[in-house]
Amino acid sequence: MVINKALLSTTVLATTMIIVARPTVQATVYITNHLTKKILIVHCRSKDDDLGVHAVAVGATIHWSFGQNLFGGTLFWCKLAVEDKRIIFVAYDQGVDDVKGDWYVRDEGVYGIHNLTFLRAAWTRP
């Protein structure tokens, strides 16, 4: 069998260009404050991005969108605070979540929007 080196090299180059040119999948995370009359303090970050500290009013939602890592591993975690209580939880994990993370923050803790009976994280006191 004779391998045409020019054809092989062109095929490898074309495949590489397709992989590099592949558009990234956009993911979005939503965190909604459903606390009883309390401002929620939210600070989220990933390995590469710090989204800063935000005050979220009752009934309001904070959200952000980002491109997923081509090879997997996109992870965002958040620190939530209200009065003297804290929660740290994973808001988005590319290996577990799809392209959307929806969270309700309630007086008992953080819940996934698709199943309000599922407690993702409970409040703690420092």
Rank of each mutant, 00 (worst) to 15 (best):
N33S: 15
F89L: 07
A27R: 12
H43E: 07
Y104C: 03
V110R: 01
T16W: 02
H34C: 04
L13P: 00
K5C: 08
H43I: 01
K47W: 05
D107I: 00
V53R: 13
V99K: 03
T15K: 00
V90E: 01
I113A: 00
I62A: 06
D93E: 02
E83I: 03
A60N: 09
G109I: 01
G59H: 03
K79E: 15
D98S: 10
L119S: 06
M17A: 14
R106F: 05
T11E: 09
L75R: 14
P23F: 11
L80H: 07
F66C: 12
M1E: 11
Q26K: 12
V56G: 07
L70T: 13
H114Q: 02
P126L: 11
A121G: 07
T10K: 13
C78V: 08
D102P: 01
V12H: 13
C44E: 05
I3S: 09
V96P: 00
G95M: 05
N33G: 15
A14F: 04
D93N: 00
K5R: 10
G52P: 13
V99S: 01
T16L: 04
I3K: 10
F71T: 13
D93K: 02
T117H: 02
F118K: 04
V96M: 00
Y92H: 15
V53D: 09
Y111E: 09
T16P: 00
N33I: 11
R125F: 09
Q68F: 04
Q26L: 07
K37Y: 07
D93P: 01
G67S: 12
G109T: 02
T24L: 15
T124N: 03
D107M: 02
G101M: 01
D107S: 06
R86K: 11
I31C: 01
N33C: 14
K85Q: 14
V12R: 12
I41C: 06
R106I: 03
G67W: 03
I19C: 12
T28C: 08
E83A: 11
K79C: 04
C78I: 04
I3C: 12
L13M: 06
T61A: 10
L70G: 12
R22S: 08
H43A: 09
H63I: 04
W103M: 04
V110S: 01
V12C: 15
W103K: 00
W123I: 03
L8S: 08
K100H: 02
V42T: 06
T117F: 06
T16G: 09
F118Q: 02
L40Q: 11
A27H: 11
D97M: 11
N4C: 13
M1V: 10
A6F: 10
S65R: 06
V53K: 15
A122Q: 14
M1P: 08
D102C: 02
D48H: 08
K79V: 10
W77E: 04
Y30W: 08
V56I: 15
L7K: 14
V99W: 01
V12P: 11
D107P: 00
F76E: 08
A55Q: 13
G52Y: 13
D102E: 06
I39G: 01
A122G: 15
R120E: 06
A81G: 05
V42G: 05
M17F: 12
L51H: 08
V25D: 03
W64M: 13
A21W: 07
H34R: 09
